[in-house]
Every structure is written in structure tokens, then in C-alpha cells.
């Protein structure tokens, strides 16, 4: 406890760096996966390759990815941009599936009713398809938010600032309280973000209770091999 009180500015600094790295990745992942997921949903031949690619993407372990990525995008290995890009890639890999599942799950009657009412394609997508797919997309986004916040800490072993520095620093100096503080703050940040998303979802989609994570009807019916849920 005294360690926390003595190091409050340091902790806040790490927390801020953590938010500044993970939040852009989450937002970018959402923005990129919406059109990609729509493509996978709309053009069947793309569905297989996009989802397979996404699947392989989150089979990749995070630390090796943080190391390989700079070579491909020309940044330095200690650059926080690597982490943002890698986390965005993981997020997209997870979200693309949610978006295409969500769009696949829209009752065809609702869609043809909207067309019959005279919606043009883009307007219909925004006014009908997106809201109806919303609950599934939101549950995907919640998984992305939580795993992004958790994964963000890995960059610390390369010296990239985040709450993860509390782990490496605490380990090197043998301060248990420091590591525990880092774990508690990371989990708390992840859960707070998750709560925030749930509340936002209720506000935006008052007609639907959020389905439990990753259990869209479709993936349930498909039964089969449930994909790895979080990158690591």
C-alpha cells in the first residue's frame, strides 16, 4: 500500500501511456473491421480467405509479432507505434468475424422489408443492418477491448511504456506490490472499458439485451470448432 502512495505519479503516468496505446488500437480495429466484415458478409468468396486470415492472425504470439512488425513497417523496435499496429491487427482479426456474423444473423425479412419501404442501400446499411447486427458487433468489441488492454502490457519487455512496466520493473527490483498493482490496474481498466461498452450499447440499442460474449446464434448452431477467442 505504501508503495502505491509513494509512487502515485509513476503509476498514473503508466496508466496514461497504457490508455494512449490501447484506446487508439481498439477504435482503429472497429473502424477497419466494419467495412472488412461487410465485405466478407456481402461477397461469399471473400468470406473464407478473410476469416482464415483473421484466424491465423490471432494465432500469432504477441511478443514475436512486436519484434517482426517493425521490419515490415519500418519503425524502430522500441516504438510504441508497433504495439498500436499489432494490437489493431489482433482487434481486426477478432472483430471481422463478429461483424460478418452479426450481418449474417439479420433476419432476411427485416432486410427485405426495409428495401420494400424504399431504403437505398447505404441508408439501409446504416439505418437497418448496422443496428440489427449491433449486439453481435458489440459483444465482439467487448472481447477486443478486454484483450487489447491485457495484451498491451507485453510491450514492456521491449521497454515500451504501459502498465506492463510495473511488471518488468517490479520483477527486476523484487517489489511484489508493484507487480500486483499492475495486475489489478490492468484488470480494472479492462473491466471498466467493458462496462462502458455495455452501457453505451444499452444507450444505443435499447431494444436488445447484449447477447453473452461470442455466442451469436449462428456460431452456436455451427457448433463445430469454436475459434481461439483471444490472441496472446
Amino acid at each position: 500500500m505504501s508503495w502505491i502512495l509513494n509512487n502515485l505519479p509513476l503509476i498514473l503516468d503508466r496508466l496514461w501511456a497504457h490508455v494512449a496505446t490501447s484506446l487508439p488500437a481498439i477504435v482503429l480495429a472497429l473502424l477497419i473491421s466494419l467495412p472488412l466484415g461487410w465485405l466478407a458478409h456481402r461477397y461469399r468468396p471473400l468470406n473464407g480467405p478473410v476469416l482464415t486470415g483473421a484466424g491465423l492472425m490471432y494465432a500469432l504470439p504477441s511478443l514475436p509479432l512486436f519484434i517482426v512488425l517493425p521490419v515490415l513497417i519500418g519503425t524502430g523496435v522500441r516504438d510504441a507505434v508497433n504495439v498500436v499496429v499489432a494490437l489493431t491487427l489482433y482487434g481486426v482479426a477478432l472483430m471481422v468475424r463478429s461483424v460478418s456474423d452479426g450481418l449474417d444473423g439479420i433476419p432476411p425479412e427485416a432486410r427485405s422489408a426495409a428495401t420494400a419501404l424504399g431504403y437505398r442501400p447505404l441508408r439501409r446499411f446504416l439505418a437497418v443492418d448496422l443496428p440489427l447486427a449491433g449486439p453481435v458487433i458489440l459483444s465482439g468489441l467487448r472481447v477486443v477491448a478486454v484483450s487489447t488492454v491485457s495484451l498491451c502490457t507485453v510491450g514492456a519487455v521491449l521497454g515500451i511504456p504501459s502498465l506492463g512496466l510495473l511488471f518488468t520493473d517490479g520483477f527486476q527490483r523484487g517489489i511484489l506490490a508493484q507487480i500486483l498493482t499492475g495486475i489489478v490496474l490492468t484488470v480494472a481498466l479492462a473491466l471498466a472499458l467493458d462496462r462502458l461498452l455495455v452501457l453505451t450499447g444499452r444507450l444505443l440499442m435499447p431494444w436488445a439485451r447484449t447477447p453473452s460474449r461470442r455466442t451469436s446464434r449462428r456460431s452456436h448452431r455451427a457448433g463445430g470448432v469454436e475459434r481461439a477467442v483471444t490472441p496472446s
Binding site: 472481447v143 491485457s150 514492456a156 506492463g164 511488471f167 517490479g170 499492475g182 467493458d194
Partner: peptide, 19 residues
């Protein structure tokens, strides 16, 4: 299983290493 997703792996590794 839900909360575990939020658990940072590096944190668990260093914690166990220290303990």
C-alpha cells in the same frame, strides 16, 4: 473464464517468477 481474459500474461509470469 471471462475475467481471466483481462488477466495480463506478463503480469502473471513476473508475479510467479518473483513468488
Amino acid at each position: 473464464s471471462g475475467a481471466a481474459r483481462a488477466l495480463p500474461t506478463l503480469g502473471v509470469v513476473t508475479l510467479m517468477g518473483l513468488m
